[in-house]
Computed example of a mutant assay.
Amino acid sequence: MSEINPKDAGGLIREAVEAAGELTHVTTQEIHDPRDGTTAIVVVSPNGVHALDPAAFDKYRLAPMERVGTAKWTTLESFIEHTNRFKVDTASAVFARDDMATAKLTTIFDYHQSVADGGDRANLRHRAEYAFPFSDQWKAWHGKDKEPMAMSDFAQFLEDRIVDIDADGVPSSDEAKAFVAAINGKMASPSKLIELARGLQVYENSVLKEARNLSTGEGQLTFESTHVDADGKPLNIPNLFMITIPVFARSPDYFRLLARLRYRKAPGGVVFWYELWRADLAFEQAFAAACEQVKEQTGLPLFVGAAEA
């Protein structure tokens, strides 16, 4: 093995340092998009070319370059007020999701400008949202829809929600009127349902005999009871009742919904339930009314569907 001359050692060290420096040399450069001339800063190193994250400059700014983020409101009024505060008439738009499970409104403040105003695109990063909250009445009636209940439970439910029962009992739409006529419907009043609920509580543990009047749509339950206060008179069961409730929380608008009253014999006695008829129609009307209110009070275009991601 040959020895290195001490006189040459310094030169070898300098060469090694220079080589290492070349390997670790990092520079920044500007590159330009050939389509529109947009400038980007990139970092060039022996490992390749990497774009510099623009967010690295944000903490040095005195003010943000643009508004970003999504404000989420719990009342329609606040959603409208916020939209009016930040809207740009030629570059903002409202989008409505009409799915009952996830109904909401979204304002995109920095949406694309119209073609008439130059058609400039935007980042779509400044938004407001309003997720429609259903009313307590809607949640209560929907929560028990088509759910069989024991006599005592059904009676308790009717008494708890009796203020929602419509005393008028007159369908508000031609479709509902046609449905009532088609099934030869017999409408129950609130007092009739209270009578029914109390009767069910009295005869809760009784032996049941059932009959149904096909001409009137009424069912008739006769109980052979061991209760000392039971007189054995039949309970006439109507097959329809109507509720009047708001669809959305804090809404002044109430809607009439038909409910079919159903029951059947079961090993443990009688079970009752109801079936709401076309509740989706009430939702659609309430949703459409809210959308119309937003259009009128903001002056912005409203599209039913989802915007670009």
Rank of each mutant, 00 (worst) to 15 (best):
A150Q: 11
A288I: 10
A286P: 02
G232H: 00
K72G: 09
G69K: 12
G305R: 11
A96H: 12
R67K: 15
K177C: 03
P54V: 06
L105Q: 01
R262G: 02
K295A: 15
A288T: 14
D33A: 12
D174E: 10
D110E: 01
S45D: 06
L23V: 06
T106L: 13
Q29M: 15
A182I: 09
E159S: 06
A309H: 02
S189A: 04
Y111H: 15
D89W: 05
S172P: 03
V68I: 15
V247H: 04
S189Y: 08
A56Y: 08
P34S: 13
V44F: 03
C291Q: 11
A230Y: 07
I162E: 00
S2P: 08
L105H: 03
S92V: 05
G48V: 10
K104R: 13
S152P: 01
S173H: 09
D253S: 10
L196W: 06
V42Q: 00
G48R: 03
L76N: 05
K139R: 15
K177D: 12
V44E: 10
E224A: 07
V26R: 13
E15R: 11
P171Y: 00
V202L: 13
V247S: 06
D253K: 09
L261E: 09
N184I: 12
P267M: 00
S152Y: 00
E66A: 15
A288N: 08
G269F: 03
T27I: 14
G219C: 04
A211R: 06
P190R: 08
A176K: 13
A288F: 04
R250T: 08
V270A: 03
Q285H: 14
T298S: 06
W273F: 12
W277T: 13
M1Q: 12
F303G: 12
V304F: 09
W138A: 10
V180A: 08
K233E: 08
E15S: 11
A211Y: 04
G269L: 02
E147R: 12
W73S: 10
G217K: 04
W141G: 05
P46L: 05
W277R: 13
D8G: 04
F223Y: 11
P171V: 02
Y130C: 05
A56Q: 10
A290E: 04
Q293M: 12
I162L: 05
A103N: 06
G219T: 12
P148Y: 00
G299Y: 06
A279H: 11
V17Q: 04
D110W: 00
A56D: 08
L235N: 00
I80P: 01
P46K: 14
F134P: 10
V304G: 02
H142R: 14
A286Q: 01
F157Q: 02
E3L: 13
